[in-house]
Design a protein around this nucleic acid. Sequence first.
DNA 1: ACTTGTCCTGTCATGCCGTCAGCTTACCGA
DNA 2: TCGGTAAGCTGACGGCATGACAGGACAAGT
Lengths: 215, 215
Amino acid sequence: MTGQVRTVDGRVAGRRGQATRQKLLDCLSEMLSSSPYRDVKVIDVARKAGTSPATFYQYFPDVEGAVLEIAEQMATEGGQLTELLAGRSWVGKAGWTTAQELVDGFLEFWRRNDAILRVVDLGAAEGDKRFYKIRMKILNSVNNSLTDSIAELQSKGRVDKDVNPAAVAGSLVAMLAAVAAHQKGFQTWGVKQAELKPNLALLVHLGVTGKKPTK
Amino acid sequence: MTGQVRTVDGRVAGRRGQATRQKLLDCLSEMLSSSPYRDVKVIDVARKAGTSPATFYQYFPDVEGAVLEIAEQMATEGGQLTELLAGRSWVGKAGWTTAQELVDGFLEFWRRNDAILRVVDLGAAEGDKRFYKIRMKILNSVNNSLTDSIAELQSKGRVDKDVNPAAVAGSLVAMLAAVAAHQKGFQTWGVKQAELKPNLALLVHLGVTGKKPTK
DNA sequence: ACTTGTCCTGTCATGCCGTCAGCTTACCGA
DNA sequence: TCGGTAAGCTGACGGCATGACAGGACAAGT
């Protein structure tokens, strides 16, 4: 399905080529974790990978192009986030568990990929459709499930009619993403990680069901 | 109180100098709105301002330094956000109004300063303390009021004891910021601006008071 | 060993970075 | 009016990253 990996000038990459390509991506990933996006240079990535800048340009048009590649890989893995919600109940104690596990899984995913997600967020906010699509791909996996859950509760009359399921779900997902991206900020406000999670879960539960959880 | 404006090499800037400096900041601001942060070059800003790159370096150490300056100005204006909450009530119909106006004011502020806020967000997420402090300065103005409101309701027994006011307030503020930054994203999910606001206000009200608003 | 196609790099023109010396301009006191 | 002084600006330059290309190294099959 996914077309073969190709170099910029159209050649098909063989085993060795793919290895260097991947090594470049790995090194870029590392660099993004340790230095500001704006300061990541092709020459540094190449040096770190023990190769030359020219090699980098054989596989990627520029830094941004390579970042997109990494982000794409991550987005695919991010599909697993759907499992945090598949077949879960929002009623009674089970609802509280669902909320907690969603928060847990989400924060964990963000923490694992924070460097690349920062850049994706920026690109999306700047209006770049490619980054925007990737961000959607990740968030949709959670957002769609959440929207469905709310819509279902709504059809049963457990949630007010004037609630827009997509708007609420989207806002909650945005909240999770933002909190995950700025976890350190909460420490300044005197909030520890461990305290943060249950309060986030509370907000998610409130948003989805409109009611306080039964613990 | 605020020390005189100085050039990089320590001279005091006079009237003309401050004008050029401001012009450079304005042009930088514009460039940030129209092109990706990563691609904003000193030479472009200088050209746009009708001056030379060397002049830029007389007033700012680099692009980042100038961005910090703009952000600082914005953060000062952002102090007005406190007024959205000062002396407001979270009880009854007034509570619903408070939530609505908070959401309105917040989104408006973000929309007006979206370009610079994107960069501040990125810098903060990357761990740069200078950006981080600016982000705090803006969010604190809302966050502190919100935390106080929740704590007060809590002391009156209207909010559960196991709620951490700072954590909930911080999460809500993060949500507002994230939604504001990605307003376009919601259109893809079929949510219009006008629909988004009341649903956000609902979430804020739920988060603060734990109860649905009376409209 | 030879051929073939993949893979890598040295090299080069181009353009931005960041600094400095030196020129112009504005202000001020005599 | 006339220097004197400090502010303000820029041309020019070495240094480094970019991005393209052509040619050399390498692996695999014959």
